[in-house]
Amino acid sequence: MAYDCIVCVKQVPDTAHVTAEAMTPEGTVNRAALPAIFNPEDLHALEVALSVRDEYGGSVTVISMGPPKAADVLREALYRGADRAVLLTDRRAAASDTLATSYIISRAIRTLGKYDLVFCGRQAIDGDTAQVGPQTAEKLGIPQVTYLERIESVTDGVARMRRNVGNGWEVVEVKMPVLVTVLDTANEPRPPAAKRSTKYKRSRTRLELGAEVKAEMPDVSKEKAEVEIERRAETLRSRGLMIDTWNLDDIDADLSWCGLNGSPTKVHRIQAIVLTKEGYTEIPPTEEGIRRLVHELIVDHTLG
């Protein structure tokens, strides 16, 4: 029995490695200066889907909601073995909170049609909320299994999975379709395959083709440019190199559920964390210095 898998992936700024170049003189982080990466746990979600397909047959479709340059993570998913990639991009989706985001993703999943398993990374490192997976499951009206450590077996449309709940583990069984969120301890993601990378390097979204045509033929009319874009898209499509691009109309989304309108939470205030350099007492690394420190900690009842 073959299973159709969908993997939801996100392109995120690399918040874990804030480099000196990304720091402003005030000591805050300039997000735009951080490199954009494949959200780490989403790579593990992709790996689970690929291994299910490799073992049981079926397909792996990767979808990503984000700005046009999120096409980069979709290409990376194709290098690693995904069969199909869909970019969800629309200005009207900007400023979506997790609720609006999960609605949009659930619409895209419904648009894809039949599926058995949906995989998400447990959480994305830019927000660390871990909310979009469970919310998407609820919107789809399907069960969720969070914190996947491994899939034990899949038999006749029933998946048996082991989840890590921090202070222990559980094995659960559920009939598909089901949405699963994956931990970074679940597996070792396979690297991009050289052959696939060579092939899919040429994969493009329509928006990228548009930008290329504009750069290469700056003087042609709009109509001519359209014709050229369509010609290139047709060639890529025939070789399976087109990354589908959908907007909110393509997935039949109710706009009152999307973007700012669809988001109950509002950001009231943002404060940047400033790393201060002052404020600590320097203790010399000597017997005497340390004895004094210990004495001070005893006097103020820190050490009993």
Partner: peptide, 9 residues
Amino acid sequence: FGGNIIATI
């Protein structure tokens, strides 16, 4: 944002 900002929602 990886602990680099504090947000009030």
